[in-house]
Amino acid sequence: MKELLKISKYQLNDVRRSKWIIIYTLFFFAVTYGLINFTKEPSKVLITLLNVILIIIPLVSIIFGTVYLYNNKNNITFLSAQPLKREVLFAGMYIGLVLPLVASFIVGAGLPIIIYIPLFIEYSGILILLLFAGIMLTLIFGCLAFYVSIKNEDKLKGFGLSIFVWLLLSVLYDGLVMFIMYNFSEYPLEETSIALSLLNPIDLARITLILKFDISALMGYTGAVFNNFFGGSWGIYISSVSMLFWIIVPMYFALRNFRKKDF
């Protein structure tokens, strides 16, 4: 435990020193603050923030995570020579990555909202969900970054693969969903599309949140089915489990590779 804290602390300091994390924080601050100032309408701010969260957080988390692990290669090699469990080393590295990312997201996006808190009081439920989605996506894409960069020795390949994973989950997967919906439009696709959305963390976060913005009324029957599912306690339970699944599975494989890897 002591070692874990020590490694995390060292990594945190390391990340803190890099200017990217500052830029990341400033970016969220500028976007949120600017949006609130321009529109003064909390619903619009939250919708735009949702768009930003769904695109930027996965992208930054996975790329930053990949770069972070490759940059720390010598460090990991050195620490591997010490009497340390690999799990502890892995956990320390992971915490060192995701903690500053999560913190800078919360501070960057949260600070302007706290400044204008009276605007957001009636949207507090959505706000919490939004922050939760941002945190979960950071954790998930951090894991994916670890998996990709541990698996691939070649920096360039790992980097390319990370970008591909992001592209796959945020763009190509939705293309596939649309393809399926279009080609099987004669069939009732409500359950299928719920299942499909559970398989992609970005979609899961997106749909849970857009349903909160009354989009469900536009969808007619499908909207009602979705609202029943995601609005009910079972739906929240299942989608939380699915989110956790998205953390645990990549982490498990990343850790397995990390244990075996000869640095």
């Binding site: 768009n51 769904l54 945020s170 969903v177 919906m181 279009y182 749909i207 969808m219 029957y221 499908t222």
Partner: peptide
């Protein structure tokens, strides 16, 4: 033409 595809709203793909 295909109302259920509205679940893709605000996706980057769209």
């Amino acid at each position: 033409q295909n109302r259920p595809s509205l679940i893709l709203m605000r996706s980057l793909f769209v």
